[in-house]
Design a protein around this nucleic acid. Structure first.
Lengths: 218, 218
DNA sequence: CTCAAGTGTAAGTATCCACTTACGTCTTGC
DNA sequence: GCAAGACGTAAGTGGATACTTACACTTGAG
């Protein structure tokens, strides 16, 4: 992506191989906590060798952000495929599973690290872009799933939709807010996982005006 | 609060006088960024003198958290007073103003700093308590405002309330989530202030089942 | 006055951490 | 076989930073 036809050198392969480990380390330790010594130890290398692959710790962090973005995007794209067939089901699945996934990847810790160390404009920009793209995607899914039959629920300023829900634009931000805060909550032990899931499923469902799961109607 | 009748020494007065400045510094610079040198400069003192008042930088940070908690509590308590007379109005006011306030105090930056440095159990605990008390308060206000006439809207598992809204418990967490994420969004320039306010007012209002503002019905 | 405790100023110290240099040993193309 | 570069290991270096020590000046009670 840099020069004409990235050559995919051995170094590139090496980087690709190591990035998941870096991501884990940044997630576990935070940005400041992940000292270059710690990063090297995690990779089972010497600091030196890391610096032969990336020019700086910041570069390692940005590579990690890129990697995570790729991972997330891949996962979401799969959901999108499902969404083509049954948008509402896909949206519900996202609501149900999102909390769990974030916890696994440790993405949120990396994001907090980035926010804190975000005096740096590069880091800031990378993170903002990440959020923006997520929002775009989620809003897209919501738009499809909120209009099962009709053509346009959100008619310009259609704030007060039929019976509930907000515009997909706003709803998507709300869902992202829930997902993000859930991770803070987990970090601080604010509430149990059940509450977290209810936040996504109930509150999220209400906002996005999805039909409730309705399984085997008691 | 420590020994029988805290003596309120000159040192105590001094601390109380300086804490707001510390808070500002932590908010502006983050925890790591607020070096002891920077803190001293902000207070127009030498590092030394700070260390005669607090035993460590961490103690300064915890004092800051305490102070902010006090400040927030005072503000919220005022709203509570209003809530006694017109709960719905108070709730709406909170929804409308919360985003702005957080931005002013810089509380969120301190919280991010704390989250990041939150390997420390003391910091973690202080922050968790802060959130828990906010939640308790907000849920209380919501409970009062959501039941203008009837006695019990949330009947145990009353998840799907009349026409919309979730339990006050969940709704309060949702509002806190919005407020928190709004600050992240501001930090990263994710969306304009108008969106932030709509998130609180529309999405929050929908979740908490508040009657929309309805002013001078166009 | 005087002694002790507080206050202001300045110079350290010890530690940590991102990043570097030096150097020996493999691999590899020719 | 051999030069050149990649790889592995170890030891720095410079700078930042939390925290300390030293010391002179004020103040106020006895």
């Amino acid at each position: 992506m840099s020069d004409t036809r990235t050559p995919a050198t051995a170094a590139d392969a090496r980087r690709a191989e190591l990035v998941p480990t870096l991501a884990r380390a940044f997630a576990d330790l935070g940005y400041a906590g992940a000292t270059t010594a710690a990063l090297a130890r995690a990779c089972k290398l010497r600091e030196n060798q890391l610096y032969r692959l990336w020019p700086s710790k910041k570069a390692m962090f940005l590579a990690t952000l890129d990697y995570l973005y790729e991972m997330e995007t891949r996962w979401w794209r799969d959901r999108l495929a499902e969404a083509e067939h049954d948008p509402a089901a896909a949206a519900r699945a996202i609501l149900d599973e999102e909390g769990r996934r974030r916890g696994e990847t440790g993405l949120h810790r990396i994001i907090f690290a980035g926010l804190h160390e975000a005096d740096d404009p590069d880091v800031r920009h990378a993170m903002a872009q990440m959020y923006q793209r997520f929002h775009k995607f989620i809003a897209h899914v919501l738009r499809r799933s909120q209009t099962p039959g009709s053509t346009a629920t959100a008619s310009g300023h259609g704030v007060e939709n039929s019976g509930g829900g907000v515009t997909p634009h706003l709803g998507a931000w709300a869902l992202i807010a829930f997902a993000t805060f859930s991770n803070i909550a987990r970090e601080l032990d604010l509430f149990p996982v059940s509450t977290q899931r209810r936040l996504m499923a109930e509150a999220g469902g209400l906002l996005t005006n999805l039909p409730p799961k309705n399984k085997t109607k008691k």
